[in-house]
Nucleic acid binder design. Structure first.
Lengths: 197, 197
DNA sequence: CTTTTATAGTTAGCCTCCTAACTATCCGCC
DNA sequence: GGCGGATAGTTAGGAGGCTAACTATAAAAG
C-alpha cells in the first residue's frame, strides 16, 4: 500500500480528450504507464497483506531473504568457504542490494535484531564494519512462510500462460532497461557480479 | 522509492534451483512477478524524482489531479451544474478515489492547505462534511508541470511500440482483474459510476 | 422525542522510507 | 608516524503510509 494511485484508471477516451489540451500527453504511453503502476500496486498490496498476516513487513522480509542463502549452507557444508561469493553480509551491502539507504537499513536491522531474527557481530578485521547474521529462528520462520509466499505468487500470475509470461517479462525488461538510462545519476557504479542466488 | 526490492533480479536458473527445494515455487510465475514489481518500482522512482524536483510528493500530486477537473471548468462555464458528475470533493471521496485511508487524506490535505494549494470549506447542508477546493495557485502549478510529466511518461514507454503497449495493457489487465479476486475483503462495495474524466 | 446507530473528519501513535549530520575507523600520502 | 580524505554505521528529524480511538453530526429506531 505504499503509493497513492488512482484506483479507477481513466478510460482511453479521457486520455484522448486530455491529449487535445496537452499535446505532450501520449495516450497509449500514458495508458500503459498507469496500468503498470496500478497493477503493480495491487499485486504488491496482496503480498504485503500476506506478509503482515505473518507478522513481518515487506522490508524486513526482503532483508531476511537477502541474508538467507540456501546455497551458502551447502557450500559451508562442503567446506568450500574461501572462494565463493557469500551474498551480502554487512549493512552497507544489504542496503545496496535492497535499494534503500544505509540509514534505512540500520532501522530495519534494529527491528529485526529486537525481534530475534538477526544478530550483529563486529568484523574482527575492520572495526568499522558489522556482520549481520541470521538466527535459527529466522531460518525456521522463512522455511515456514515461503511455501505460502510462493503459492501466492503463483496464484497472482495464474491467468497468464507460459508464453504470456515470457512476453510480459520481455516487455517489462525493455521498459526497465530504458528507465535505467533516463536522467542518469552522475556516476554509474561498476556492475557487480551476480551474487544473489 | 517506497518499496524495498531486490535490485538485481535472480537469474532464471536460480529460480529453477529454488524450485527443487520448494515445490511451490513456480519459476515463470516468480520471474514475471519479480519483473513486474522491479520495473514498476524503477518507473515509479523516476516519476517521484521528477515530482520531488518540482517540490511536491506523489501523494499530494495525486490529490491535486483528482481535484483538478478540466472538464468541470467547461461544464461550469456552460452553467450545466446540476446533473453532471463533478468528481471527488470531500476528503472521504478523495480517499476512496486515491486508495488511501481517510486519516492519510487528512494529512495530505493538511499539507496541501498549509502550502496554499487547496482550501477547506464546510458543507452548508451537512455540517459533518467538508469540501476541498483547488486554489488558483494549484491550477497554475498543475498547468506548469503537467507537460513535463506527460513527456516523462512518454519517454519511459518509448521503447514499446503501439502494439506492444496494447499487449502490455492486456496482460496487466488480466493480472489486475485476477488480483482483485484473491482473498476478497468481505464486503464488495457497489461499483461506482466512472466519475473520473 | 429520545436513544441508538452510522457517518465524516480528526487526532494520536506506530512503521518505513528519506536526507543530513555525526562518530569512529581505515587508508594513502607526506 | 601523523594528517586529510574516504568509508561504515548510527542518529536526528521529516514525510507519508497505516490502525484505532475520538468528536461531532445525521439518520434511523423505538
Amino acid at each position: 500500500m505504499p503509493l497513492l494511485l488512482l484506483k479507477d484508471l481513466p478510460r482511453y477516451e479521457c486520455l484522448l480528450e486530455g491529449a487535445k489540451e496537452f499535446p505532450d500527453l501520449d495516450p497509449s504511453a500514458c495508458e500503459a504507464f498507469l496500468h503498470l503502476l496500478r497493477t503493480s500496486d495491487e499485486v504488491f498490496s496482496l503480498v504485503e497483506e500476506d506478509l503482515t498476516v505473518h507478522g513481518i513487513s515487506h522490508g524486513r522480509f526482503g532483508v531476511l531473504m537477502l541474508l538467507w542463502n540456501p546455497a551458502q549452507r551447502r557450500i559451508d557444508a562442503a567446506h568450500a568457504v574461501g572462494d565463493c561469493p557469500t551474498g551480502p553480509r554487512t549493512p552497507a551491502e544489504l542496503a545496496d542490494a535492497a535499494g534503500v539507504t544505509r540509514a534505512t537499513m540500520t532501522g530495519l536491522i534494529d527491528t529485526l535484531e529486537r525481534d530475534g531474527f538477526v544478530r550483529r557481530e563486529p568484523d574482527p578485521k575492520d572495526r568499522r564494519m558489522m556482520s549481520v547474521l541470521l538466527t535459527e529462528k529466522a531460518e525456521r520462520f522463512l522455511v515456514g512462510i515461503l511455501p505460502a509466499h510462493f503459492k501466492l505468487m503463483t496464484r497472482i500470475m495464474a491467468p497468464l500462460s507460459e508464453s504470456e509470461r515470457k512476453t510480459l517479462v520481455r516487455l517489462l525488461t525493455k521498459v526497465l532497461e530504458n528507465a535505467g538510462e533516463i536522467s542518469v545519476p552522475a556516476i554509474e557504479p561498476a556492475p557487480r557480479p551476480p551474487l544473489t542466488c
